[in-house]
Structure formats: structure tokens, C-alpha cells
């Protein structure tokens, strides 16, 4: 097991290098000049050129990228062009916010999506099933930015129950922290809840047709135990994979949600950096995001082995 984890982590290194290389190359192709942004609208060509030289942007792309990799080897992600701080510092400030947001959204996804799918599968074509399927369809088809706006209007303006945006760190005020995450995490999670409910339902229907479910009933186990123990563990094997994918999608979805709700997380950091062509922040942000996804996949694979005894990662 330990050897498997080590192998997977080593294999992640080339993946991350390629991701950063592609990201840097694409940003190089996008028009726009951070020096012009910093110098301001009325600046002359000479002033812009001077800023560019100060930032080191007058050197060739290959040289700058090489320097970035050398810095990376020392654990230094460079300095932001706009934020007046190091990229590492900027990311460290933002990561906990995004993890809180997508973590709460993931919790909602699993705690609502899986039970809803199971309930629907236990009584196919009943009103419970119809309700779950309809809600899932709505969740999948409503764009999350529109949903966000509607929720803000409803809960933030018409009935003034929840903040319409912003973020309060947990350490500052846990209650306000939770209140500030309610609308964003619902907006973020609804799509994933719908997907997970549908997949759980389909998987459960299939699992319930298995011979071992009939055996469990023939042994006289109560129906609740047959479903919650014998069927559910088998359902969770494919569903865990889906939950892993969901978390990845929640992370990328947070770019839009953080912008709509003015939450200072990784998503907004990246979005702002892209608009202002803050190359070092873009590079560092993408590296951290890609590394998170690689780790996530590893965790999913480990969970998979924990659930299914037929899966083993030890080499024989």
C-alpha cells in the first residue's frame, strides 16, 4: 500500500510539470499586457516599456519559464505582479476559503444525493422516485450563476435571513462563517446533488437485482439491513468514483460562485489574475489546483480498495 502511494505521487510530478507548461504557453498566446495595466491608462509607450523591464517581462518566455521552474524547485512560486505579495502567500490565504466552500458543498452533495438516490431506488416509479428525479433534473439544468442570483434575491433581499455575499473566517465567528457559506454552497452543490442522486439511484436498482441481495433476504435479514449493509456497500464502489469527480467539479465551479458571492477564495484569485494577466499567480494557482486533483484521485483509488476487497494495489 505504502509503495503504491509513493509510486502514484512520483508519477504525479511529470503530470504537474506538463500542466504548468501548457498553462504558461496558453497564457503567452492570450493578448494583453500586465505592464500596460500597471502603468495605467494614460501612460506613454516609454513608461509602459519601463514597467515591463522592471517586472522582467522584456525577457524571452523561455527564460522566464525556466526561472519559474528553478524557483519551483526551491519551493518559491514567485511574486505577484499586482498583489504586492508572494504567490505562495496569496494562495495560502485563499486555499482555506475555497476548501471550506467546496468541502461544505461536497458534504451537502453526499448527504443529500446518496440518500435521495437510495430512497428513489427502493420505490421505483413512486412519488418519492418522481420527486427525486424531478429535483435532480432541475438541479442539473439550472445554471448555478442564475440560481445564485435567485437565492440572493430570495434569502438575502426579500427575507433578510442570510448574507448576500462576503466571507467570515471560521476563527473570527463560527456562526457567521456558517451563515456566509449557506447560499454559496447550495448554489455550488445543486448540480452535483442532482447528478449523484441519479447515479446512486441507477446503481442501487442494479445492485438490488443481484443474487446476493436475494440471499441476504433468504437469511431473514430485515429489509433495512439488506439495503443499508449488503446493497449500499456495493453501491458505494462506483459512487465513490463519482463523488471524487464531483469534488473536482466543485473546485472548478467555485470560480463562478466565489465571484458571484464575493468570496475571497482560490477561484476568485485565479479569475482576477487571469483578467489582469498576473502570470505568476495564474501559474501557481493552476499548479495548486492540479496537485489537489491528483491527490483527490489518489484518495478515491484508496477508498475504492477499502470498499472492494477484490481491488488490491500490492504488486505480487
Amino acid at each position: 500500500m505504502g509503495e503504491f502511494i509513493l509510486r502514484r505521487l512520483l508519477a504525479a510530478i511529470p503530470v504537474l510539470l506538463i500542466v504548468t507548461l501548457i498553462a504558461a504557453s496558453i497564457m503567452q498566446l492570450v493578448p494583453g499586457d500586465p505592464a500596460a495595466v500597471i502603468a495605467g491608462q494614460g501612460a506613454s509607450d516609454a513608461e509602459v516599456a519601463q514597467v515591463r523591464a522592471q517586472l522582467g517581462l522584456d525577457r524571452s518566455f523561455v527564460v522566464r519559464l525556466g526561472e519559474w521552474y528553478v524557483g519551483l524547485a526551491r519551493g518559491d512560486l514567485g511574486h505577484s505582479l499586482m498583489l504586492n505579495r508572494s504567490v505562495g502567500q496569496a494562495i495560502l490565504e485563499r486555499v482555506p476559503v475555497t476548501l471550506a466552500l467546496s468541502g461544505v458543498a461536497l458534504l451537502l452533495t453526499v448527504l443529500i444525493g446518496v440518500p435521495a438516490g437510495v430512497l428513489a431506488a427502493l420505490r421505483p416509479n413512486s412519488w418519492v422516485d418522481q420527486l427525486v428525479l424531478t429535483m435532480a433534473l432541475i438541479g442539473v439544468s439550472v445554471p448555478n450563476f442564475w440560481l445564485s442570483l435567485m437565492l440572493i434575491v430570495l434569502f438575502g433581499v426579500i427575507v433578510d435571513w442570510l448574507p448576500t455575499g462576503g466571507y467570515v473566517p471560521f476563527a473570527e465567528d463560527p456562526v457567521e462563517w456558517a451563515r456566509s457559506l449557506v447560499l454559496p454552497s447550495i448554489s455550488l452543490a445543486l448540480l452535483q446533488i442532482g447528478l449523484l442522486a441519479r447515479i446512486t439511484r441507477a446503481t442501487m436498482l442494479e445492485v438490488l437485482r443481484n443474487d446476493y441481495v436475494r440471499t441476504a433476504r433468504a437469511k431473514g435479514l430485515p429489509r433495512r439491513m439488506v439495503v443499508a449493509k449488503h446493497a449500499l456497500k456495493n453501491v458505494m464502489i462506483p459512487v465513490v468514483t463519482v463523488i471524487g469527480i464531483s469534488f473536482g467539479l466543485l473546485l472548478s465551479g467555485s470560480v463562478v460562485i466565489e465571484t458571484v458571492y464575493s468570496i475571497p477564495g482560490m477561484g476568485r484569485l485565479l479569475a482576477t489574475a487571469i483578467f489582469s494577466r498576473d502570470y505568476p499567480v495564474i501559474q501557481g494557482g493552476l499548479l495548486v489546483t492540479a496537485a489537489t486533483l491528483v491527490l483527490l484521485n489518489l484518495v478515491v483509488d484508496l477508498l475504492y480498495a477499502a470498499l472492494d476487497p477484490r481491488v488490491t494495489y500490492d504488486r505480487r
Binding site: N210, D211, Y212, R214, T215, A216, R217, A218, K219, G220, L221, H230, K233, N234, I237, L307, D308, P309, R310
Partner: peptide, 20 residues
């Protein structure tokens, strides 16, 4: 079921739960 009447099936592979 299971207490007064026991039952065994044809396919012992698929009749046992693979994850227990």
C-alpha cells in the same frame, strides 16, 4: 426466513456478497 427455513441457491459465486 433463515431461522425456520433455510435456502441455498445455484450460483455460489453470485449468491455470496463480494464485499463481506
Amino acid at each position: 426466513r433463515g431461522a425456520r427455513i433455510g435456502m441455498i441457491f445455484q450460483e455460489p459465486m453470485s449468491a455470496l456478497n463480494p464485499v463481506f
